[in-house]
Amino acid sequence: MLFQPVYNNGEMFLPKIELPMRDNQTIGVITDLKRRQYLMNQLMDPSRYYLFRVQQNEYMRLTVEELLTFLIHVSERNESADRLLDYFSIKEDRKTKVGALSPSKKMYVTLLRVYFAHQPTLVLEEPFFFLEEGDRRKFKVILDDLSREKQILILTSNLEDALISCDAIFRINELGFHPLDIQDSDEEKQETPEQDSANITLQKIYTKRNGKVILFNPPEIDFIESVEGSILVHVDGENYDCALTLTELEQRLANFGFFRCHRSYIVNLQKIREIITWTKNSYSLRLITGKDAVVPLSRSKLQELKSLLNL
């Protein structure tokens, strides 16, 4: 999937992007509202892309069953509404009017439109944003089933939402277009040199931003991530470049309660608020920060983390 660059007042707003679309793969793109609009404007071809926008609303006066029947007929499917009600697990709401559903259920029912799409590629804008936990899980199952036959692209501004169902995640911001490393790597063996546990009590983390050198006290740091080889230190929603490698940082920060939760992430244990379980083997950590930050957690690291936290 190829996107043309967009310029705004002579500045590059959106770089030229090529998304590697493969079958059986759901791709997530994390970006802001405006860039999302520009991306979607390039996907207006109704024969190739089914575009689900976040403003999509539903026929409020139809019941759920009538709505499904309508969608089946209008998209010329040979399916029975009964079977689909079961599959979508909304049987108990079949006689409820869409307008009378709870906001999360209403969004869930609205999202079902993507199931009926005949286009080879589905593009969803913020599909999980309005869904409650249970509906998220249900919709994730539907998306996983859909991804067997179709390519799915999810546009969101929230890493957590992208982590739910995407196999590959990219981030587009003012720094350009970057893949995010979210693969679980159990095979990878890390050679951790024997740590000389010298009684270092003062340890500053040396970062650079816009040419300035900034030193952080470790407790200030929320988490550290590695994006395409460069190390970003996240402090209070902002990120700063760091010249050290993740392994070096891990050693330095081990005494300050930091934990290597993922091949590309080090997290400050003091800042963990919640361990989110998406499916049996996909986890992420939600942090207590001003902005809602979420960090992936490798399956292999889960036990280690639990023992560290005495769970």
């Binding site: 089914y50 926008r53 209008v74 998209s75 799409a117």
Partner: peptide
Amino acid sequence: KERNTLRSLMMTPA
């Protein structure tokens, strides 16, 4: 139009 269902309808075979 108000509910953006017309646009969605245009993406069905209709």
